[in-house]
Design a protein around this nucleic acid. Structure first.
Lengths: 139, 139
DNA sequence: GACGTTATTGTAAAAACTTGCAATAAGGAG
DNA sequence: CTCCTTATTGCAAGTTTTTACAATAACGTC
């Protein structure tokens, strides 16, 4: 779990604090590597920190997302999930079986520049999930 | 409310039924034209159909989305909202003030074809919401 | 029009998520 | 190391969303 402590300076620099709760949650995200629902995070992080409560999990995940340490993403069923922030990428989820692949951010880069020019909006950089039908399910 | 009855043949052709509940909900979506949360839809549709219940609203919105009559979209706060299906378009929402503009689907068309080629997935056509900072908030 | 099939609804209860507030503890200052 | 400030947590209660299942009603068929 020491790895999660690495994030402390980042938080402190912005006036936030590193706490056992945040450590446990970061640790779970870091070692799972996948998309986790708040309930998943709660169940796993609780094993390291039995006193952890659900409201704290929800608040912490939102906090981590706002500060760029976690990345929110919508699951196939429309629910919010989180993963540890890392390489910038997006997802394509199969509408039929739910299988999921990653798409490099570079594929969207030019679209974002086009959108900024057309709309006048700036800093468009959201994480996006697309839905389609995977090769298997196309049968 | 007669306008909502126009959708009946579409549903019947697929073995589904048109009901007063679906009519009321379609009517609300149709005349608001904006993004509505399930709670908004419930409040408004209830005025036309007092017996309407919340679970029905949730189920109906999901049903309409699955059948292409409504379009789901995520609001700035991450909650699911719906609008009537119409011209295909996407949204850019301002991270600061929440203001929102539409983007023609044609802008994304080429990206979708690119994604299909790169991923092997087919029929990628999801409605997408981007986040950025609007001209006003760029000050 | 009446009948039967079965999609759809309401009910009731559970699960998931959010909020306000008092108590706690992280970490900078002395 | 101790004190102080205030970010953060846990608690408790609220709101929102989902689920299971029996009752209802749409609509094709006779």
């Amino acid at each position: 779990m020491s790895c999660a402590a690495d994030y402390a300076p980042q938080l402190r620099a912005r006036g936030f604090r590193m706490t056992p709760q945040r450590m446990a949650i970061l640790h779970v995200l870091r070692h799972s590597g996948a998309h986790l629902s708040p309930a998943d995070v709660y169940k796993q992080a609780r094993r390291e920190l039995p006193g952890l409560t659900e409201p704290t999990v929800y608040r912490t995940l939102e906090f981590l997302a706002e500060n760029g340490l976690a990345r929110p993403a919508y699951s196939g069923s429309g629910h919010l999930t989180y993963e540890i922030a890392g390489d910038d990428h997006h997802h394509v989820i199969c509408r039929v079986c739910g299988s999921e692949i990653e798409v490099e951010h570079t594929m969207l880069e030019s679209l974002y520049r086009k959108l900024e020019t057309a709309s006048g909006y700036r800093s468009i950089d959201s994480h996006v999930t697309f839905f389609g039908i995977c090769p298997k399910c196309q049968k």
